[in-house]
Design a protein around this nucleic acid. Structure first.
Lengths: 129, 129
DNA sequence: AACGTACTTGACGTTTACGTAAACGTCAAG
DNA sequence: CTTGACGTTTACGTAAACGTCAAGTACGTT
């Protein structure tokens, strides 16, 4: 067990530059251990990176992603903190559901557009025939 | 018919600054007519703005949104162009579906996190009782 | 010993997406 | 006739998210 990764490993696996990964560390989103000078990433760090990139694809800012990661690692605090966390998560869920509705709308529009295009192409075929 | 809007109207309706709306015009995403100097937005312009903001919520860059709007307005070009458009739309659909999967994953994780939090709270209640 | 490869830390540059301030035009109400 | 609300252009500022060198370290190989 206890697999570890170099920055180059993660860079290749997730197709991001090492600069990007270090940037995330600068912002406190990653905290690899060190072997001498070199960064050593645990499986947990790797999961964090995966979550960061997923969040990025969803349009979250790195700051927001940081908060999400806090949630992810959190269940340690006091009851009051935990309740606040739960509240935040509910909010997140809300925006995510909105976002999914947005996606569905755009998908519908793309379908409609494609049909319009297809019809135009067909009608031209008729004229050409 | 033929309802029109001022920049302030749209600004209030969609809760963005006028600066933002003008910025979109600078980038060619909106093209209102003028009454003297003043911008006059048609219902179609309003729809465009709505689409722009939706795209933004989904994490698209304004440049990408511009391409999407081209698609939206497009069905005018030649057959070859239309086919290219259809190809682009398929790509879009691909990334959107990916994005939806991302969202579902995050939602699942939020559920799991919330359960973990709830369990912790419960176990503490027991100890407190 | 020299070379290649992977890693390190700065530090300045760039792109995107606006914010913000200045300075001015226009029109209706008081 | 001034005040206020709304609009205009121009232009510099800024935060976020990296890109892009430069210069050095630390290895294993040849």
């Amino acid at each position: 067990m206890s697999e570890t990764f170099s920055i180059g490993d993660l860079s290749r696996e997730f197709e991001v530059t090492t600069r990007t990964i270090r940037h995330y560390e600068d912002l406190g989103l990653l905290a690899p251990t060190r072997s001498g000078q070199n960064r050593i990433y645990s499986a947990r760090d790797r999961v964090h990176l995966k979550l960061i990139l997923r969040g990025r694809r969803l349009g979250f800012s790195l700051k927001e992603i940081g908060e999400l990661l806090e949630l992810y690692d959190a269940p340690n605090g006091e009851a009051s903190q935990l309740k606040r966390f739960i509240g935040k998560m509910r909010q997140r869920r809300g925006t995510l559901l909105e976002q999914r509705r947005d996606i569905d709308r755009v998908l519908e529009e793309l379908d409609a557009l494609e049909k319009r295009c297809a019809e135009i192409l067909e009608s031209r075929d008729e004229n050409a025939a």
